[in-house]
Design a protein around this nucleic acid. Structure first.
Lengths: 107, 107
DNA sequence: TATATTTGCAACCGATTAGTTTCATAAATA
DNA sequence: TATTTATGAAACTAATCGGTTGCAAATATA
């Protein structure tokens, strides 16, 4: 079982679930209503998301409310960070080139 | 064939390749030296990364140099963006709570 | 108490994945 | 020209994935 956060967000249904419960907690039944697959399929996705701590559960009677562990998403953000540095550097370099051209036009 | 960018970065070997070629272009052979699997396995990963336009090739004689299409990574950053908004909002709310406590202590 | 509702889990299935070995092609070199 | 080197593609395999159906457990309701 690999089950890391990158594998978790690889599936489009799981990404949709994540967005769905980002704003408010929802029960598995309510989540499943938004998809064409069975409730059990959604339940399996929720299990995977729970296993890598991307979602948390809150029992309320016989209902279980699932909500997003937003902080966990920072792990992906952290990985992207290193590339953000690269593209920002490249943008700055482009910026320099552009301002050099501007100066040359002025002369 | 799904082959979107999220599925591409789901595999740990592919993530390692991405980081490896982020700073400088490399040949498949040179990339493969960094892993325990065969050159052909790395070649397959490079094909997947190429198919979703995460890497670009540059032929140089019989060698092919692979490098990262850093801009493509912005697509993931864009998806994360919506959650960044959420956690920043929550941080601000926490900030308010903390400053309220601070004020109460002063009184 | 009997029944309905909400949920998770197990067993199964077809498709996909990541790896392997083998082979073909093209370029560099002896 | 013959050989070595760099690479990609094809065929195969074991494992995993995403889905299904069927069932069990726990809670709510009649």
């Amino acid at each position: 079982m690999r089950r890391d956060i990158f594998q978790a967000i690889a599936d489009p249904t799981r990404r949709a679930i994540i967005i769905l419960i980002a704003s408010q907690a929802m029960t598995p039944n309510a989540i499943a209503e938004n998809f064409n697959s069975t409730r059990q399929a959604v339940s399996k996705h929720l299990r995977i998301l729970t296993e890598c701590e991307l979602v948390k559960q809150e029992q309320q009677g016989r209902e279980i409310y699932y909500s997003l562990e937003v902080d966990k998403m920072k792990e992906i953000d952290k990985w992207i960070e290193q590339f953000r540095k690269i593209w920002e550097t490249r943008f700055n370099q482009l910026d320099k080139v552009l301002s050099t051209i501007k100066k040359q036009k002025k002369c």
